[in-house]
Simulated scan of single mutants.
Amino acid sequence: MPERPPRRAVITFHEVAERQLADMDDAALARLDPHLNTIALNPKTAGVQLRPDSPVLEYAKDGVRIAYVSTVLGTIVLVAYVEVD
């Protein structure tokens, strides 16, 4: 039986993040994309919780910062904020 690819979460963007994406050039979007893929594959473990009482996780690596919330089952990720240095 062939091995199934890992399950990926669906990434959605809050309107603030959508505006940030619209302001990015192609190079910044290209740098952002692999990091969004990392989050989609491992939404619960890719980021760190900002505060113990908050569902918001922060992923920061290689000049990319993403604040997001994952559903309980990890099937949907709402990206609230993106930043690419």
Rank of each mutant, 00 (worst) to 15 (best):
I11N: 14
V82D: 07
M24A: 06
K44Y: 03
M1R: 11
R51I: 01
V72A: 13
N37I: 12
L41H: 15
T45W: 11
I39P: 02
N37G: 14
V10Y: 04
G47H: 05
V84M: 06
D85W: 13
I39A: 10
G63N: 11
E83H: 14
R51K: 10
V77C: 07
D33I: 01
D33L: 14
S54E: 07
A17F: 00
P5Y: 04
G74R: 02
R7H: 12
V10F: 07
E15R: 10
H14V: 03
T38E: 13
I39R: 14
L29S: 11
D26I: 12
R4M: 14
P2I: 11
E58M: 14
Y68F: 05
E18Y: 00
E83Y: 11
V72D: 11
R7K: 14
T75I: 06
Y59F: 13
M24T: 05
T71H: 00
D33N: 09
A9K: 12
D85K: 12
D62T: 01
A40D: 07
L78A: 09
A17D: 05
T45E: 12
S54A: 04
H35L: 05
R65W: 04
H14S: 06
T12F: 07
R31D: 10
Q49L: 05
R4H: 10
H14I: 01
Q49C: 01
A67T: 04
N37L: 15
G74Q: 09
V82F: 00
A28P: 10
A67F: 05
A9F: 13
V82H: 08
E83W: 03
Y59Q: 03
R65A: 01
Q20M: 03
Q49P: 02
H35E: 07
R8E: 15
L36T: 11
L41R: 15
V84Q: 07
D62E: 13
D23H: 04
V72W: 04
V48T: 10
V79Q: 02
R31F: 03
R51S: 07
V16A: 14
L73T: 15
R19Q: 13
P55L: 04
R7E: 14
G74E: 08
P2F: 13
N37H: 15
V56W: 01
D25W: 15
L50V: 06
S70K: 02
I39S: 05
A30E: 15
E18N: 03
S70P: 02
L32H: 05
P5S: 09
Q49E: 04
L73V: 07
R4S: 05
G74F: 08
R31I: 00
R51Q: 03
A60F: 05
I76M: 08
T12K: 11
V56L: 07
E3N: 00
E15M: 01
L36W: 12
S70W: 01
S70I: 00
H35K: 08
L50C: 03
Y81V: 00
G47P: 02
P52F: 00
D25Y: 06
A9Q: 12
V48L: 08
T45H: 15
I39D: 06
V64E: 12
R19G: 05
P2R: 10
D33F: 15
R65E: 01
P6F: 10
Q49Y: 00
A46P: 06
S54Q: 03
V10T: 11
K44W: 03
F13V: 04
A27Y: 11
F13N: 06
P6I: 12
Q49A: 02
I66N: 02
R19V: 02
L21E: 02
P52Q: 08
L50D: 08
H14M: 02
L29M: 12
L78Q: 09
V16Q: 15
